[in-house]
Design a protein around this nucleic acid. Structure first.
Length: 366
DNA sequence: GACGCGTGGCT
DNA sequence: TAGCCAAGCGT
């Protein structure tokens, strides 16, 4: 292509791209600005695969700030993958409570047990082997391989999606652009690789602290020179995303049932699905506003004392929920289901359960 | 490939 | 306030 020709808008080859210079600039930046995190080892030092795996699973779709206290709690309780493998399911679910995406906790335990029994307690090092383990997909396998074992791998998370989309000015919206992002990301990650783990973390740190979604700090970005989005003044706009559907609303009742001793009724939810395997309060079905909503797990609306002030709102990934609280004594003849149990009020705060229930408990107890 | 699956911080 | 979205995975 003649040098006088303007850069094509799409696709953008970024012909000024130089892998060696890119890697050098990014690693130099990382050596000065790497964040200090509990699971992270200083550049060059050996990582603990158990810590890398645990942190990466916790960090799936979850912010660093939210993960830090949970990571500390887990390594305090279970210092090795074998100890975690030997833990009771209930203890792990309670320790995870509040972090969200509870299938991760179920898979975490499955994975720990697989590593413990099938791999003699030692994490496999290849990406393909790692991907056979529960809860480890494309991203996490690549992250563990590179960060824990210094194996060259193309590590693509949401940060890398954004950095690559901007650096190469990819115009197609996510997730349509995933294949192109991967293709371009390979140009950054592949080749003669020194410090693959540091490079992967540098890419993610850059996305988390400099190449941020709303206001990218291009003025201090170590790779700004050849960033096609910055050169075109469209960094803030990228990556484009396909339009999202409006979240539906659902409503329902949540029950605060007490027995003669003042204990409160809790239950363990079914093992899969929403909040699967977690402890919660009994609720009605959650239905669209206006829909008939007398189908209750308790079938007790008629006898209950409704308190319209006991309302909580909670947003899940795919719907907005409004629950109305109902306080009532256990109905005459009430018998516990196998998954239900009584809890003394003093013991409730120590119980681990999802945020939607914690909101209601706080409302009742405060 | 589309969808189900939490939560909290930020704008 | 309401929307956006963060170190994704399993089905």
């Amino acid at each position: 292509m003649p040098k006088t020709m303007p850069a094509p808008l799409r696709p953008c080859k970024n012909d000024n791209f130089d892998q060696k210079a890119f890697r050098g600039a990014l690693l130099k930046w990382y050596d000065r600005h790497a964040r200090v995190l509990p699971w992270r080892y200083t550049p060059g030092n050996k990582a603990n695969p158990y810590h890398v795996w645990l942190s990466e699973v916790m960090l799936q779709q979850t912010t660093v700030q939210a993960v830090i206290p949970y990571f500390g709690k887990f390594v305090d309780k279970w210092s090795t993958v074998q100890k975690l493998a030997a833990a009771k399911d209930e203890d792990v679910m309670h320790a995870w409570a509040g972090l969200g995406y509870y299938a991760r906790a179920r898979n975490l335990l499955k994975c720990a047990r697989a590593v413990s029994t099938e791999h003699l307690g030692i994490f496999p090092e290849s990406i393909d082997s790692l991907k056979t383990l529960p809860g480890i997909g494309d991203y996490t396998a690549a992250a563990i391989a590179s960060i824990a074992f210094d194996i060259p791998a193309t590590v693509i998370d949401g940060n890398v999606d954004r950095v690559v989309s901007r650096y190469f000015a990819i115009q197609d919206p996510l997730p349509d652009s995933k294949p192109e992002i991967r293709e371009q990301a390979k140009r950054l990650f592949e080749g003669t690789v020194k410090r693959p783990g540091d490079f992967a973390q540098a890419m993610m740190d850059l996305g988390a602290t400099i190449c941020t979604p709303k206001s990218p700090k291009c003025g201090v970005c170590p790779i700004a020179e050849h960033c096609q989005a910055r050169l075109r003044g469209i960094a803030t706009e990228l990556p484009h995303r396909r339009e999202k559907a409006v979240q539906p609303k659902r409503v329902g009742y949540v029950y605060w049932v007490t027995n003669s001793k003042g204990e409160v009724l809790f239950e363990t939810r079914p093992p899969t699905g929403l909040l699967g395997g977690m402890t919660g309060l009994p609720t009605s079905d959650w239905v669209a506003p206006g829909a008939i909503n007398h189908i209750s797990a308790m079938k007790i609306e008629d006898t209950a004392v409704m308190n319209k002030n006991l309302k909580i709102r909670h947003t899940f990934t795919h719907f907005d929920l409004e629950l109305t609280g109902v306080k009532l004594p256990a109905p005459r003849g009430f018998r516990l289901s196998p998954n239900q149990f009584w809890v003394a009020p003093a013991d409730i705060p120590a119980l681990g359960f999802p945020t939607v229930f914690r909101k209601f408990v706080r409302l009742v107890l405060d």
